[in-house]
């Protein structure tokens, strides 16, 4: 069953994030992808997130589809104007990639091309509008298209941090849903209980909510999240749990699996983010009983 069908049928979906290489050696992407075949409903391919120039998500998504996986590719506004965006969207449809997620653009401060000129011809809602327009068989210049593309488009929630950050993020998501997005992907959830409030409010939107589950690879990463990401709710107990584990790597996998399980009844799916440890995805899936 395709990703869209499962979403519509309100079945639990499991997504995995897979990054494209910085370069043209795609062996790792392809091999990791093959290993996931049949184990996830779709793979999400981010596009130059963090402002790191890489192989484009469209190409990555097509490659993964060739491996028999279903791809969701990220689209965003920082690097392309409406011409390039529309052109690529048409290309995506033609190449068989029909799942999109509109994501906010990462700050260029950590980019490897800090001097690059940000475009922002459209904003996220504008991009969603462009997608809707294309689906209606027109482009933003109102010209008719030869053939209409179809997309299943999601959007991303910017923050799960209680209070203003979440409220703002929620408003943005509402706007994007109004503009045509049909599902929402959240930032990583580490403590399902602590995020219960925001998740509940998201649930009330009536669209499928897919929560990101992030593999914490080390104590340092856990500490980093605890210190820098208010929405992460990484507790000291969690840090200590990783620290005390004889095998921190396995403990991290276990924690991710537990979060996946805990989310089972809360959201309509999970997005597993392993960031380079895609070889650990099968272990998380096994442990989570998926």
């Amino acid at each position: 069953m395709s990703f869209l069908k499962r979403l519509t049928a309100k079945e639990f979906v499991v997504l995995a994030e897979m990054h494209t290489p910085k370069g043209v050696d795609i062996s790792r992407l392809v091999n990791d992808g093959r290993r996931l075949k049949g184990r996830v409903d779709a793979v999400l391919v981010p596009d130059m997130d963090n402002g790191i120039m890489r192989l484009s998500a469209l190409a990555g998504g097509v490659l993964l589809q060739q491996q028999g996986l279903e791809a969701i590719i990220a689209v965003y506004c920082r690097d392309k104007n409406r011409m390039a965006l529309q052109g690529d969207l048409l290309a995506a449809h033609v190449l068989g990639v029909q799942n999109l997620i509109v994501v906010p653009s990462a700050d260029m401060a950590q980019s490897d091309h800090r001097d690059a000129k940000p475009v922002f011809d459209l904003d996220e809602a504008g991009l969603l509008n462009a997608i809707a327009t294309l689906q209606e068989g027109k482009d933003l210049g109102s010209a008719d298209l030869d053939g209409r593309p179809f997309f299943n488009t999601g959007c991303a929630l910017a923050s799960l941090a209680d209070g203003a950050p979440f409220d703002e993020a929620l408003e943005a998501v509402k706007a994007q849903l109004a503009a045509g997005a049909t599902f929402v992907i959240t930032p990583p959830v580490f403590d399902v209980q602590a995020c219960a409030g925001p998740l509940k409010k998201l649930g009330e939107l009536g669209v499928p909510i897919i929560a990101a589950v992030f593999l914490i690879k080390s104590v340092a990463v856990a500490r980093y999240l605890a210190r820098n990401d208010a929405g992460a709710h990484v507790s000291d107990a969690l840090i200590q749990r990783i620290k005390k584990a004889a095998d921190r790597e396995s403990e991290a996998v276990k924690i991710a699996a537990e979060i996946v399980q805990a989310l089972g009844s809360v959201t309509q799916g999970v997005l597993l983010q392993t960031h380079g440890w895609e070889h650990r995805l099968p272990a998380i899936l096994d442990m989570a009983g998926l």
Partner: peptide
């Protein structure tokens, strides 16, 4: 060596 870099913990090897 693998590391996670920047606010989004992007993975580099």
């Amino acid at each position: 060596t693998g590391m996670q870099v920047g606010p989004q913990l992007f993975y580099r090897q």
